[in-house]
Design a protein around this nucleic acid. Structure first.
Length: 287
DNA sequence: CGATTTTGACCTGCGC
DNA sequence: GCGCAGGTCAAAATCG
């Protein structure tokens, strides 16, 4: 399995971020499933080029992403711990979410908080993940989170923390853990969709204001994705505009059966408004 | 005093 | 069936 995963764990050594805001001002990542849903992207096509190391910023792919049952693990990581998690995450990326939703207490009640019966499959939430070089575990991303659990990770010295968005009725979660192999890297995995705008107290994040030029109102359909980047992506939503996604991307159930070429589904960047904001080094067009 | 974090217990799925 | 690992709950502790 490690054979599959070596080549993609790429990141630059010379920059570090202290927040996702920092991070995302310099790079861009989103799983394709999200892109499809939010930005009406077409299904994967062969026109997507593999990412070049030159394009990869501090954010690199995440082992939880781009996994599907029918393809070999194409994790980004050569990290043993993460790699070891991949088999699980191959499932967790799929059914794992169901576990999330049908956890402990809920199962005993036969119904989850979402009213789902035990064992009933829940549609997976979109997942977006980052690997970020940072000394700070929990990177500021503009949203408010409550930690609800922490678990030791097998074969890792570092625990994994579980957070949930504190906004009522928002069920977005995120997991934060350090790479076992490179402790300077924080792996943040977002799961779900924020159904609310950034908390007003945080909305004025310097970066967000800077990038957006306004306080921003709720769009009602916001991914667990730092706002300025969502806006950024929205701004660039254009039929012929493609996005570069850094590293691997999750490829969820509804597409899991299609031919999924690990090396050929990376969106290609076409500089649009994006280039005004995102350093071009991270938006290098490959063709 | 409300919000958040900590942490042990518990549940589920999976592999053997 | 059993053990393991991941994920969640919830009471207690801590924080602001």
């Amino acid at each position: 399995m490690d054979d599959h995963v070596e080549q993609k764990n790429i990141y630059l050594e010379d920059v570090s971020f202290t927040s996702l805001t920092d991070c995302l001002q310099n790079s861009l990542v989103m799983d394709y499933n999200s892109l499809e849903k939010v930005f009406k992207f077409p299904p994967y096509s062969s026109s997507f080029k593999p990412i070049s190391p030159l394009n990869v910023g501090q954010i690199v792919s995440n082992p939880y992403l781009n996994l599907n049952k029918n393809s070999p693990v194409v994790s980004s990581s050569s990290n043993e711990a993460e790699t070891k998690e991949n088999p699980d995450d191959t499932n967790n990326g799929m059914e794992g979410n169901e576990r999330d939703q049908h956890g402990v207490g809920e199962s005993s009640k036969q119904l989850t908080k979402h009213g789902k019966k035990k064992g009933e499959k829940k549609e997976r939430e979109a997942r977006v993940a980052f690997m970020t070089k940072s000394e700070i575990d929990h990177l500021e991303d503009g949203y408010r989170w409550r930690k609800y659990g922490q678990k030791a990770v097998k074969n890792s010295l570092y625990p994994r923390s579980y957070y949930r968005c504190t906004t009522q009725k928002c069920d977005v979660k995120k997991r934060v853990e350090r790479s076992f192999q490179d402790p300077s890297i924080v792996i943040t995995t977002y799961e779900g969709i924020h159904n609310h705008p950034l908390p007003s107290t945080l909305r004025g994040t310097v970066a967000a204001e800077h990038l957006l030029g306004h306080g921003g109102g709720g769009r009602g359909f916001i991914y667990s994705f730092p706002r300025q980047h969502q806006e950024l992506l929205m701004m660039n939503h254009h039929p012929e505009v493609h996005y570069q996604s850094v590293g691997s991307m999750s490829y969820e159930q509804n597409h899991g059966k299609s031919s999924y070429d690990d090396n050929n589904h990376q969106p290609v960047v076409d500089y649009g408004l994006l280039q005004d904001i995102v350093p071009s080094m991270f938006l290098k067009h490959e063709s």
